[in-house]
Amino acid sequence: MLGQGTKPELTVWYNKRCPVCNVGIGRQKRRLIEAVKAGRIEFRDIDFEPAALAGYRASLEDIRRRLHATDAQGQLLVGADVVIAVWKATPGEGWLATLFGNPIALPLTRFAYDRFADLLYAWNRRKGRW
């Protein structure tokens, strides 16, 4: 268990109102249950703390559009970099982080993630999910 004042290794901010995001985060929470219980990883719904990442100049809309996370050192991760960090922490999914996060694949991974995130964001806005 982390001591008081100790930051989690990874805090992931997401939009729970997005059904795709919510299902994906739910799956990861189940796969990371021990890390979540121990406080090493947190998953937080941005709608409860809309200004949580304002110090990073990340708006509520930015976080609704793409996953954001902070690590224990306070570094901000965005989009595909969050997914890769979660895969690294998830038992049995480190190979995904290696495959999609290597220096050759990473630009394509980020591009694909961003295009998917743009489509998902537009779909959620059309459906009035905020």
Rank of each mutant, 00 (worst) to 15 (best):
A58I: 11
A69V: 08
D45T: 06
A35F: 05
Q75E: 15
A52V: 02
F100C: 06
C18P: 05
R44S: 05
A54I: 02
N124V: 00
L76H: 13
A58C: 12
R115Y: 12
W95L: 08
R110F: 04
G92Y: 06
K88M: 15
Y113F: 15
L67K: 01
G3P: 00
K127E: 12
N102G: 06
G128D: 03
Q28E: 11
G128S: 01
T6I: 04
H68D: 03
T98E: 11
L96K: 12
R64Q: 13
L108Q: 13
F43N: 10
F43C: 12
L106R: 15
A89G: 06
V12W: 11
G3Y: 00
L96G: 07
A51Q: 13
D62Y: 04
D81Y: 03
R40E: 15
G3R: 03
R30D: 14
A80C: 02
R65N: 07
W95D: 04
L10M: 07
D81L: 11
D81S: 11
E34M: 12
P8D: 09
W130T: 09
E34L: 13
L2I: 14
V36A: 02
E49H: 13
G24D: 10
K37D: 14
I46Y: 05
A72H: 09
T90S: 05
L60C: 05
A69Y: 11
W130R: 08
L96I: 13
L10W: 06
D114M: 08
M1P: 11
T6L: 02
P103K: 06
L77V: 01
L76N: 03
R65P: 04
A38V: 08
I104G: 06
A117M: 03
V12R: 04
T90M: 01
T90E: 01
A52R: 01
P19D: 05
L120G: 04
F100T: 10
L108M: 14
E42C: 11
P8Q: 08
D71C: 08
E42Y: 09
W95F: 07
P107D: 13
E9S: 09
L53D: 02
I104P: 07
G3V: 00
L120Q: 14
L76K: 03
L53E: 02
L120N: 13
E93W: 11
Y113M: 05
P103F: 03
W87K: 10
Q4G: 15
R110I: 10
N22C: 11
L77E: 01
A52M: 01
F111N: 03
A80L: 00
A89F: 04
L120R: 12
L32S: 07
A72P: 05
I63T: 11
L99P: 01
L53M: 09
G94C: 00
P19C: 08
A85R: 12
I63P: 03
W95H: 10
E93G: 00
V78M: 12
W130C: 10
L77S: 01
R126G: 13
L106A: 14
T109E: 10
R64G: 07
K37R: 15
Y14P: 02
Q73P: 00
N124E: 06
T11E: 09
